[in-house]
Amino acid sequence: MRPEHPIVLITGASSGFGEAMARLLASQGCHLALGARRVERVQALADELTKAHGIKAFAGAVDTRHTASVDAFVAEAAAALGGLHVVVANAGLASGTYKLWETPDEDLEAMMRTNVEGVVKTIRAGLPHLRKAGWGHVFFIGSTAGHQPYEGGSVYCASKFGVKAMAQSLRLELNGEQIRVTSVDPGMAVTEFSDVRLKDGDKAKAVYQGVKPLTAFDVAECVRWSLMAPDHVNIDEILVKCVDQASVHKVHRRI
């Protein structure tokens, strides 16, 4: 059975979806293991949430591209908190809007190593702790880009189609164990995503011009709701978009 206070590990917890998940789940009494490359941010967040909600929180540096970094972070987090129940493989990024043949190796490798390899490494390291606990939940953070490709996003879309495939495969592979698997796949959402992708603040703002997009807390609520479902219920996939976005290519703008 789901414990009263699940211990939740979140990668990419320094901002965006990860930070919002940490804040929302802490308010629900979950204990947290927060990881990111910007360790000072997750440490400050862990300290804040511990004081505000009386939970236990561990913060550590993790670069999900590197196996040793992931393994060390997960092991330290489990030891500090007394185990793990939930793994949220949240760390991910898009880099550039290149056509397939224009994509530089640096951007190609950043997306595939973080969005695909990093997810494998995070879940691979976390699963033994979930199995030991006897109850668990794995969250993949996908994207509408994993359902519908678009121009200028070939590699990013490929990585998110990969996330969807991994989530569906893991769901089959864990059948018979008391470990749930959920993929949360958001559309347009205001985070640092576009700033990182476009490397230009004005261009990033233009992405959402005239639109009321999802917030990070909208996506965090999908995680909270799935986690709190009755034990016999598995929410396999949530595809969530703002009302203004009907599809990747159809967005209503009030301009």
Score class of each variant (00 low, 15 high):
Ala94Lys: 03
Glu117Tyr: 11
Val74Met: 09
Asp231Glu: 15
Asp236Ile: 03
Ala91Tyr: 01
Ala59Ser: 14
Phe193Pro: 00
Thr103Val: 14
Ala20Gln: 02
Arg38Asp: 09
Thr97Tyr: 09
Lys250Leu: 06
Ser247Lys: 05
Pro230Thr: 07
Ser69His: 01
Lys56Thr: 07
Ala167Trp: 04
Gly92Asn: 12
Val86Pro: 01
Ile7Gln: 04
Asp236Pro: 02
Lys51Gly: 06
Gly201Tyr: 01
Gly153Met: 03
Gly142Gln: 04
Asp202Ala: 15
Val223Trp: 06
Arg38Gly: 11
Val119Arg: 06
Gln43Glu: 15
Val248Ile: 14
Gly29Trp: 01
Tyr156Ile: 00
Leu93Phe: 07
Leu174Asp: 09
Ala33Leu: 10
Val42Lys: 01
Ala20Phe: 00
Gly60Asn: 06
Glu192Thr: 07
Pro128Thr: 05
Val243Gly: 02
Arg253Met: 10
Ser154Met: 11
Ala125Arg: 06
Thr103Ile: 09
Cys242Ala: 15
Ile179Val: 15
Gly92Met: 12
Gly35Ile: 06
Asp202Cys: 02
Thr50Cys: 13
Ala110Val: 02
Val39Gln: 15
Arg197Trp: 00
Ala46Cys: 11
Ala33Lys: 00
Ala13Thr: 01
Glu40Gly: 01
Asp195Thr: 05
His249Phe: 12
Leu127Tyr: 10
Val39Ile: 12
Asn90Arg: 03
Gly35Ala: 15
Cys222Asn: 07
Ala89Met: 08
Asn175Tyr: 13
Ala89Thr: 04
Ala78Cys: 15
Phe73Glu: 02
Val233Trp: 12
Gly187Phe: 02
Thr191Met: 11
Ala26Trp: 01
Ala13Val: 03
Ala61Ile: 05
Lys241Gln: 13
Ala20Thr: 05
Val119Tyr: 06
Gly126Thr: 03
His31Glu: 09
Leu49Met: 12
Arg131Gly: 07
Lys164Phe: 01
Ile10Met: 03
Gly18Ile: 08
Gly176Ala: 13
Gly54Asn: 12
Gly153Glu: 01
Val190His: 02
Gly92Arg: 04
Gly16Ala: 03
Arg224Leu: 11
Val88Cys: 14
Glu4Cys: 07
Val86Leu: 11
Phe73Tyr: 12
Asp236Lys: 13
Glu102Ile: 10
Thr191Tyr: 00
Asp218Thr: 04
Lys160Asn: 12
Ala13Ser: 14
Val233Lys: 03
Arg38Cys: 10
Val155Arg: 10
Glu40Ile: 08
Glu106Gln: 11
Asn175Lys: 14
Met111Ser: 08
Thr144Cys: 02
Val223His: 07
Val248Ala: 14
Leu25Phe: 03
Ser143Ile: 08
Lys164His: 13
Ile179Asn: 05
Met166Ala: 13
Glu19Trp: 04
Thr11Lys: 00
Ala125Trp: 09
Ser143Gly: 07
Phe140Ser: 03
Phe161Trp: 15
Ala59Tyr: 07
Thr122Cys: 12
Asn115Ile: 06
Ala229Gly: 11
Ala78Gly: 06
His66Pro: 01
Val62Met: 15
Leu172Lys: 14
Arg171Pro: 05
Gly187Gln: 07
Thr50Asn: 11
Ile141Arg: 08
Arg2Leu: 09
Gly142Phe: 02
Gly16Val: 02
Arg254Tyr: 10
Arg41Met: 08
Glu4Phe: 08
Ala165Val: 02
Asp47Cys: 07
Val88Tyr: 05
Lys199Ala: 15
Asn175Gly: 13
Gly60Met: 05
Lys132Gln: 15
Leu9Ile: 09
Leu81His: 03
Thr144Lys: 08
